[in-house]
Design a protein around this nucleic acid. Structure first.
Lengths: 205, 205
DNA sequence: CCTACAATCCCCTAAAAACAGGATTTTCAT
DNA sequence: ATGAAAATCCTGTTTTTAGGGGATTGTAGG
């Protein structure tokens, strides 16, 4: 039986690229693509791929969330994370959320086929570069922030004061202040300026 | 004569994707690809494409720099910028550096062919989304800051207080404060958080 | 010469953020 | 159900920023 492949990515060129790369792969069946999380979930109600190639940067919800959702509903599907950049933080996150592999978008055809094969065998796969990055960043921790903290962080970056954030989120100023304190602690940032800089570089914003 | 297309992108999948998208395009000749700025310049010494599809995010130097370089040496080549994201600042920058078009990586086959055709006709092309962004950001100028201001800006982003910056630069706190005030004014930022966010996105830091 | 601009310095006040201690409730997975 | 983690709220003090004035040097260009 052919391995059924489904791909979720919002970039047309990537979809085309992967389709083209997989065209000659033996034992692979391309069963379609989705360009958003919602259309992906809709597709899965009627189709059962073996492997989903899942872009981490999606327009509606993050690929990481989607990965979790897919894994909860369809635990048998193997998920391989895809990303354009060496987003250190994301590699860990998506693997923690049930993905079985991670491949960068500059991967070669061989790497991609290798990843699919490895995951089909029930093992985990990290592309060479991804593995390097994980190795390189051992110790340089990526903070794990909560939904609410992320929300506050993003509002801070938009220039809102604690007061305005409090009003917007219907919470007390002191709560916002606490979230802010926790953010500073988690990022080990001295002040807002560093916080925003780090968050931007780690692509939290 | 067929339009000779050359592509510069460090992502294998994108290269494959575009190759696949252009395969059926009439009058197009795919003459190769480069995955870095240096190999691109090397290729151009022996080949003359009509159109270069140029990714903005390259590993060695930025696509914007490369664009300038290509245009200086080979002014006849039409360059179409490619980018994954709606990087507002980049659209202006690459167009200012001689590019004739800008297409997002989630463009359809039609958009891409349209872009190539338009540029071959000697006109400029902006993809729908890109045009929207530019339109949305009319008036949102890129601030011009002085050497000293840039210095202060970068120290702010590193988390130094005005006091520490003053000590470091051997100037008074009030001077630092003035620079800060001017930075906020130039970026039209409400506070430090927005300032740093904008500066990061506009690549001042 | 004169102007523009950068870079420097000063004073002031209100608002905001940083920092340090807490405490309570809700949510969620084992 | 129980414990951990998240999210909420509180009371303080100290430091920093935001934002408003205004002023002095030096330098480069028209």
């Amino acid at each position: 039986m052919a391995t059924r492949i489904f791909i979720v990515d919002d970039h047309y060129m990537i979809i085309e690229g992967i389709r083209s790369l997989l065209q000659n792969g033996k034992g692979l069946e391309w069963i379609g693509h989705a360009m958003s999380a919602t259309s992906c979930m809709a597709f899965l109600q009627t189709h059962q791929p073996h492997i989903i190639l899942l872009d981490i940067n999606l327009p509606d919800i993050s690929g990481i969330e989607l990965c979790k959702e897919i894994k909860t509903k369809y635990p048998k599907i193997g998920i391989i994370g895809l990303s354009s950049y060496n987003q250190q933080s994301y590699i860990n996150k998506i693997m923690d959320n049930g993905a079985s592999g991670y491949v960068l978008k500059n991967a070669t055809k061989e790497e991609l086929l290798d990843a699919i094969e490895t995951v089909m065998d029930g093992e985990k796969y990290l592309s060479e570069e991804a593995a390097l990055i994980v190795k390189k960043n051992v110790g340089s921790k990526i903070p794990i922030i909560t939904r609410r903290e992320k929300e506050v962080l993003s509002l801070i970056s938009e220039g809102l004061t604690n007061n305005q954030i409090a009003t917007k989120l219907f919470i007390s100023i002191t709560t916002v202040d606490t979230h802010r304190k926790n953010l500073l602690a988690k990022f080990e940032a001295k002040n807002t300026a560093t916080l925003i800089r780090m968050a931007t570089h780690l692509e939290f914003i």
